[in-house]
Design a protein around this nucleic acid. Sequence first.
DNA 1: TCCATTTTATGACTTTAATCATAAAACAGA
DNA 2: TCTGTTTTATGATTAAAGTCATAAAATGGA
Lengths: 198, 198
Amino acid sequence: MIPTELLEKYGALKKVFDKMAIIFEEGNLPAYYYQIVSGEVKMSNYNDDGREFIQGIFYKEQSFGEPPLFLNQNYPANAIAVEDSEVLLLSKNNFMKLLEENPSVSIKIIQNLAQRLYYKSVMAAEMSTQEPEHRVLKLMDHGIAYFNFQKDENGYLINFTRQQIGDLTGLRVETVIRTIKALEKKGVLKIINRKVYR
Amino acid sequence: MIPTELLEKYGALKKVFDKMAIIFEEGNLPAYYYQIVSGEVKMSNYNDDGREFIQGIFYKEQSFGEPPLFLNQNYPANAIAVEDSEVLLLSKNNFMKLLEENPSVSIKIIQNLAQRLYYKSVMAAEMSTQEPEHRVLKLMDHGIAYFNFQKDENGYLINFTRQQIGDLTGLRVETVIRTIKALEKKGVLKIINRKVYR
DNA sequence: TCCATTTTATGACTTTAATCATAAAACAGA
DNA sequence: TCTGTTTTATGATTAAAGTCATAAAATGGA
């Protein structure tokens, strides 16, 4: 989102996180601005009995973890590399200096936060209605617009596992599997050797 | 959040909305920046069978409805006056000009969006865990920090109706009533002639 | 002050997703 | 290629919130 050269000009350093590596943890105070160069990162919570809720999944050129950075609050979730990933880290002070000296970046940040707030609003409304079919469809349609789903002759490939869909919608795997089957029967999506197309 | 004088300098006009009046509707394109002078506004969705989900409640000096304004997207929810309210409206063009010419306001906007994203993240994780007691408590504790709950000798008065708590947490009124009773029995909150204190 | 509406409350019952158990298929690493 | 792990899958059962019915208390207008 912020050009790499600009970040590096302010002293950003590239760091490599192996798959599964923890980038930051819930409860800690933010110290850096994070922007992905390559790979995939998820932000998620684990509740008392180990159940995961995925707040969001981020891909190359996307940033994550800014809200608590701006607010001086503890991270409300963990950031974990889903794949081997390269991430640019810029210390808070330097990031703030970058913002001050480059007002156009502020607008970018605002738009990015607005986008994520929009997603959260839509999903919150959807999750409260409780109907699994609604939740799953909304997530997929959102993913088509904002995650990097690829289109081929069968439609958009939803490249999430059933478990991930469950963790993003607050449903259990079995429920997701049964829901997807039901949606296929209704003809609103296709399952071609276990992969879901919409 | 943005000083009244600054908004008025850029041509903002004060508009009065009676209790229950619709300020904007889901699906419409944004045209204004909205900031409350007095009163109370809720943003909410109604699903197919008329059930309401409250995205958030806003009070004096707070703004609402900016994300879609920045993104040129349709409103994902309705804004409705909960009480008779005065609201400052500033047209999109003038608002953008204000932002460009007053970079410090951008930082305010960023912090505000970050705060709301933080709330949504916490509630989303909480709502996915499904346990009513968790959801209700989290909402109350959030409310103590961010809504204007008043403290007296019994603790903080949670001035939401059971119905509102339900609409904010995705639970039914009866469930909220039973949950609050259970929480009282556990001693984590007080009910004094039907009012809830925490 | 009176009356209609809203809010809180409670019990009975129903529905639905979670849970538990189990297994086949696919995948990844040695 | 073999093997352990992950992913998808399905059936049976359970638990828990939703639904429905009903009503008392509180509130707010007229």
